[in-house]
Structure formats: C-alpha cells, structure tokens
Design a protein around this nucleic acid. Structure first.
Lengths: 181, 181
DNA sequence: ACCTTTTGCTTGAGGTTTGAAGTAACAGGT
DNA sequence: ACCTGTTACTTCAAACCTCAAGCAAAAGGT
C-alpha cells in the first residue's frame, strides 16, 4: 500500500461534507466567498493532478503549459505563455527547459524580435498531448456530472463576471503607482 | 524600480478583459468552467499574496496556517491542519517548523496521543496575526466591492454546492480501491 | 501478550513558483 | 548616433508542495 494517512492530501472527509472546511460562522461574507472559491479550486486541482500522475506520469503545470501550446499551433512566445498561465517568467523558463528535455516542445528564434523565442510542439509532443487532452476533458465532464446544467451555466456566468471584476481591482503595484504620478 | 515586465505575474492585461485568458471557443463546457474557476482563484490569490508581502512581509500559506490556528484557540493537531489547509502532512511539518522559528506558534505534546503534537499561537503570534487579519478582510471586502450583493450570494451558494459535489466525486485513490475489494 | 493494521508525523528527493537582480534587444525621442 | 526607458528573457535563492518511504504510537483482533 503506497498511499496512506498523512501522506495523502486530505481533501474533504466523508464525515465533513456539508460543513465549511476552512471557514466558520463568524467570518464575514467576503472572506467566506474567497475561502469557498479557493476550496473548490484546490479540490478540482488535486483531482486532476492525481489523474494526470496516475494515467500519464505528468503534472498539472506541464499539462497546462501544453494546453496553451495546443491552442496556438503556430507557437507562442514565453511572454504570452506567462500571461496565459498566470505565472512568472522564471517559472515559464524552467518549465520550458524541462519540456524540451522531455522532447515534447521545441524553441525557435523569433525572426521579428531578437529577445524572444517561440515555443511550439514537436510532432511527438502534440500527439502525446492530444491523447492526454481527450481523457482530461472526460475527467472534468465526470467530475461535474450531476451538478445540474442550469446551475452550471449560472456559475459559469458569475465566475466570468467575477473574473473581470477582480481583474479590474488589481492591487496597486509599484510600477503602476509610479506610472500614475 | 523593483518590479518590471516579466518578473511580475501578468494576471490579466487591460487589453484582455472580456476575453477568456485560458480558454477558447471550442472547449467544452466542463473544461471552460474549470478554467474560469481556476482563473478567479489564482487572481484573488495573487492579489492577496502581493498585499501580504507588501504590508507584512509574509506569505499566503503562512497566513492561512495562522488563520486556522486563530479559529481554534485551544490549538490544533498537525493532522487537522493538514485537512483544513488541504495540503500534505510534509508541508504542514515544514510550515510548522518555520513558524516556530519565527516565534509565532508553539508545539505542545498531546497528552491523549503520544504520536501527536498540538500547535497553537504564542502571545506574540496571536497579536501579530490579528493585526494582519483585520487588513486581510478589508482587502477582500474591497476586492469584491462593486460585485453586487445578489450575485455574490448566488455565487456563494453555487460554490457551496460545487464544493460538496466535487468532494463526493473524489478520484478512486489506491487506498480506496483496495478497501473496496 | 502478540500480531496486524492503521494513524500521526517526519524526512528527503524532486518538481513548482515566486521575487529580485541581471543581460540583451527593442523603441522612442533628440 | 546617443540616451532613456521598456520589454523579453534568464538566473538564482528561497519558499512551497507533493509523493514516497520510513518510524513510532495507537487500536483491534486473536
């Protein structure tokens, strides 16, 4: 038995469903909303992470990286990947190097910009990813199956609004502050 | 200027609001829902992370850890923390050691169980956390401010349903598989 | 008492991620 | 051409996190 007790992430135990795992009654609504959002996100993430490891021996960040590449057959600049994946540039650099070692992607010089390089699938990479993507989608379909469709549509719409709203409320970062003066 | 271009996480650029950052039109609904959920979660996370660093020089995992302790004044076992924080035990061990070094928490032997230790605030830790918590809540209030209340309530309710639904759909882990035979 | 299984925790290797500092190329304006 | 500022990327340290393997205490069964 390879997995037991403490080693495994305890998502939500059978005896705990129905009670909030991270919030108690005296929190205020903004905090509670955030904790619930996080809880959902982490649970789905862990669900998918386990499946990716068990089925394909890969990780979520790598899958996400490849998913972006799949949407852009002509390749992407690292900068664009950084935006899409919502991670820092250093992280993209690291992931890129590893995926190249794995033989799934390749780098090309960007003819229009000496600083940039463009990254795209190798033939093997694309084939391998597409096999994963089919199953990946099915996992999500299964995961949300039974969460009824009208609810799902409403949730989708509301998350869309929230996404935009939060994006507009970005923290005043140093660079932004300086530009405003 | 300490923060520039590639070093900063590009959450969603001004020119991109309104288009889906991670999904394109041909994805199916389950995948799109997941990506939107993730996008919201990551954005809020980064917002809070930046604030915690700028204002208090601390990190989100540490804050979350302390927040759990704050809800349980009698202290918590590491096991319980692992469940609440939705992270592995090894991670809790590491965070615990660091927070002890920082002087914010302390360990006690659990008199009822020789394997366990109980962790709780030091006086300094509690004071320090509570100062942070007040601001932290305000950040979230500000972040969600203008996202109108009925929407927020609906979203909160739907996320609650989703949380329960997903928790019930846990992946069949090895240990579970074996128990079922 | 003995054995087996489970539980609570630690450790260590390896992957992920950030934030900060640095290099080089581009894009103005002068 | 030069200067200034910005952008694209890399590097590195430090933090985070998972997974697997272990150890010791607890719980149950015989």
């Amino acid at each position: 038995m390879t997995v037991r007790g403490f080693a495994r992430v305890h998502v939500v135990g059978d005896d705990e469903i129905g009670q909030e795992a991270r919030a108690s009654a005296d929190d205020h609504s903004a905090v509670r909303l955030w904790l619930r959002l996080l809880s959902c996100s982490v649970q789905v993430e862990q669900h998918i992470r386990v499946k990716l490891r068990e089925r394909f021996g890969t990780t979520l960040p790598r899958f996400d990286y490849l998913a972006q590449l799949d949407r852009h057959p002509d390749g992407l600049r690292l900068n664009a990947l950084s935006r899409y994946l919502m991670v820092t540039g250093g992280n993209v650099t690291a992931l890129t190097n590893q995926l190249i070692v794995d033989g799934l992607i390749e780098r090309l010089a960007d003819p229009t910009d000496g600083r940039s390089s463009i990254v795209r699938f190798t033939k093997i990479g694309r084939r391998r990813f597409q096999r994963m993507a089919v199953e990946h989608e099915q996992w999500l379909v299964d995961l949300f199956d039974g969460f009824d469709a009208p609810h799902r549509d409403t949730l989708y719409a509301l998350l869309g609004r929230l996404r935009v709203h939060v994006a507009e409320q970005r923290p005043v970062s140093p660079s932004r502050k300086e530009r405003q003066t």
